[in-house]
Write a protein that binds this DNA or RNA. Structure first.
Lengths: 208, 208
DNA sequence: CAGCTATGTTAACAAGCGTTCTTTTTAAGG
DNA sequence: CCTTAAAAAGAACGCTTGTTAACATAGCTG
């Protein structure tokens, strides 16, 4: 019995340690700056031991990438399908902004965002995924929400996609600002209410 | 006669060639990826000859940086001081957006923007300058414009700084989108009218 | 023309990189 | 206890990196 957990315990442990260390270092120094030796040292093993767990450095990065773009937004739209919940109007937008805000102040998501920003101009894969999530899918879902709001005469009519971009862009902008502030250890508490302010301002501009 | 151009001709020539080559390569591969040897090869000299013109690689980068953040926005606000011209209302915003649009489709500025985005998480100096220009100064000037518009009852009242951020963020977002699209050789002509659309949408939200 | 300075080449350095090979250590199962 | 396989260490490889030193070659200035 116990056929379920057949895998070697320690191995999986260090494999995850490697991924965690690699993620930390890449979030700090980028793909190139996070050398195999530095990663190994952070884990507490020799660099050659890394190759017992990963084919090469790129595979480490690929593995991290795979976890990079999962769930952050999918989760929201699954729990709050625009077709149904967008009726809430401003409240729906507030919930969305609150999600972004949460992510902005979450340590793990901060690391992921850093890696994305560090490699977005270098890695085709990162850029592809970024465009897919941050521009295409996200905007598409949000535009559905605005379309629904228009149908229910909650907001003025117009191009839902443009509206979605206009709504999302400042959120992205503030999120980037927080990350950059934090890198210089500048305080970010003044930015903590900016997401709500954005929704207030935006809603006032579109509400009927 | 011709007393004007007293300086050594060839020297300044190659020094500028080095800067240009370094800028090209750094815009493509980042600071680390643009090795001294690659730069030298692009210029057509040996890597050691570089050190006749610059103390080290970092000095090359610093020199480029110094030219990075000059004038793009300063020019606009000098030619269109918000205290005087913001009376134009929507037209003023349209002019500002047009400037961003121009920069987005200008080859040289594209390179500068790439370098900024590539090094913003790595170089303290780049980040500092970026925050100064793209967030602080820019927003401050724009907020003056909105303040003037409020005084003249062209737009609804509110926090001018928030309004400036809300106006600028989508411009930045679209500009980033264009750069990313172009890296994948995706067409950007569909984005050429987005700046005007943004102004239209935004103005409708704040106009009285 | 001699000499100086600027600019270039050639060669080399120490260090770091990703990766591979061989050997040793560790842990588990029959 | 012995076998076996996994995981780690150690050493080395070929390569690239930034930088320096020694030397050559111009071109201008006296």
């Amino acid at each position: 019995m116990s056929q379920v957990q057949e895998e070697p315990k320690v191995a999986k442990d260090t494999k995850e340690k490697i991924l965690r260390a690699a993620m930390d270092l890449m979030a700090l120094y980028g793909y190139k700056g996070a050398s195999v030796r530095k990663i190994a040292k952070a884990v507490g093993i020799r660099e050659s031991a890394i190759y017992n767990h990963f084919k090469n450095k790129e595979e480490i990065f690929k593995t991290i990438l795979a976890s990079l773009f999962t769930t952050p937004f999918d989760d929201f739209f699954e729990n709050h399908p625009p077709e149904k919940d967008a009726i809430e109007g401003k409240n729906y937008l507030m919930k969305f902004a609150a999600t972004i805000k949460e992510l902005s102040f979450d340590a793990r998501n901060e690391k992921l965002f850093r890696i994305i920003m560090l490699e977005i101009m270098q890695s085709d894969e990162v850029r592809k995924q970024f465009l897919k999530y941050f521009f295409d899918e996200n905007i598409k879902k949000l535009s559905t929400a605005f379309f629904v709001m228009m149908q229910h005469a909650l907001i003025r009519s117009g191009d839902p996609i443009l509206m979605a971009q206009e709504f999302f862009a400042p959120l992205f902008y503030y999120r980037l600002e927080i990350t950059l502030f934090r890198m210089d250890e500048r305080p970010t508490h003044s930015l903590s209410s900016i997401f709500e302010k954005h929704v207030d301002f935006f809603w006032e501009g579109i509400a009927l």
